[in-house]
Simulated scan of single mutants.
Amino acid sequence: MANSIDYGNLMHSAMRGLIRKVLDRVAADGLPGAHHFFITFDTMHPDVELADWLSDRYPEEMTVVIQHWFDNLDVTDDGFSITLNFGDSPEPLYIPYDAIRTFVDPSVEFGLRFETHVGEEDDEDEDDDAADGDVAEFDEATHERPATPERPAPTGDAEIVSLDKFRK
């Protein structure tokens, strides 16, 4: 049994499941209304499949847009394949969900970002301490979230007030 619950990976799995469900719907029914997607992915991921000229042009990451013209959208449990138009040249792509770095639908101001942690495979204990951009950290010793520029550290002189004090 693990020493702790890996909320970061659980959250990423849930977010990737959301992307799969959205793409499943689009594959079945097309894009509804003004919806469209910007998907940025790691072109170096071992399971990504794209034309050599695209991987040469985008050696680290690439953003694709699913909007007006796309074809052959096939959604699986591990990723999706799609044909997109690059300068009047249709190109098939396969993008595993694990390669996705961002998924944005600007029509409704929705976005997901997947953070990667340097040295994930080197030291599993670092995963417990590493902050995911979409998941709040929690300090087990103080039972508080750590201070950030947006959230100052607790001062310790807070007063606990009972609501009964304000009841008539």
Score class of each variant (00 low, 15 high):
Met1Pro: 06
Asn3Asp: 14
Ser4Met: 10
Ser4Val: 13
Gly8Ser: 13
Met15Lys: 14
Leu18Cys: 10
Leu18Glu: 11
Arg20Cys: 04
Lys21Thr: 13
Val22Met: 12
Leu23Cys: 01
Val26Ala: 01
Ala27Cys: 06
Ala27Glu: 06
Asp29Cys: 03
Gly30Asp: 03
Gly30Ile: 05
Leu31Lys: 08
Pro32Asn: 08
Gly33Lys: 05
His35Trp: 06
Phe37Met: 06
Phe38Trp: 01
Thr40Gly: 04
Thr40Ala: 08
Pro46Tyr: 11
Pro46Arg: 15
Asp47Phe: 15
Ala51Val: 00
Asp52Met: 12
Trp53Thr: 13
Leu54Asp: 03
Leu54Asn: 00
Leu54Lys: 04
Ser55Cys: 09
Arg57Gly: 12
Tyr58Phe: 14
Tyr58Leu: 08
Tyr58Arg: 00
Glu61Gln: 15
Glu61Tyr: 11
His68Ile: 11
Trp69Leu: 11
Phe70Val: 07
Phe70Met: 08
Phe70Leu: 07
Phe70Ile: 02
Asp71Gly: 02
Asn72Met: 09
Asp74His: 13
Asp78Val: 00
Asp78Gln: 02
Gly79Asn: 01
Gly79Asp: 07
Phe80Met: 03
Thr83Pro: 05
Gly87Tyr: 15
Gly87Val: 14
Ser89Val: 14
Pro90Phe: 06
Pro90His: 05
Pro90Ala: 11
Ile95Tyr: 03
Tyr97Glu: 00
Asp98Lys: 01
Ala99Glu: 02
Arg101Tyr: 11
Thr102Tyr: 03
Thr102Cys: 01
Thr102Lys: 03
Phe103Asp: 03
Ser107Glu: 05
Glu109Gln: 15
Glu109Arg: 15
Phe110Asn: 01
Phe110Glu: 02
Gly111Asn: 04
Arg113Lys: 15
Gly119Trp: 12
Glu120Ser: 14
Ala130Ile: 11
Ala131Leu: 14
Asp132Asn: 12
Gly133Ser: 11
Val135Tyr: 08
Glu137Gly: 05
Phe138Arg: 05
Phe138Tyr: 14
Asp139Arg: 09
Asp139Cys: 13
Ala141Trp: 10
Thr142Ile: 07
Thr142Phe: 10
Thr142Val: 03
His143Thr: 15
Glu144Ala: 14
Arg145His: 13
Thr148Trp: 03
Pro149Gly: 08
Glu150Asp: 14
Arg151Leu: 11
Arg151Glu: 08
Arg151Gly: 04
Gly156Thr: 00
Asp157Asn: 15
Asp157Val: 03
Ala158Glu: 15
Glu159Asp: 08
Glu159Lys: 06
Val161Glu: 02
Val161Trp: 01
Val161Gln: 09
Asp164Arg: 03
Phe166Asn: 04
Lys168Ile: 09
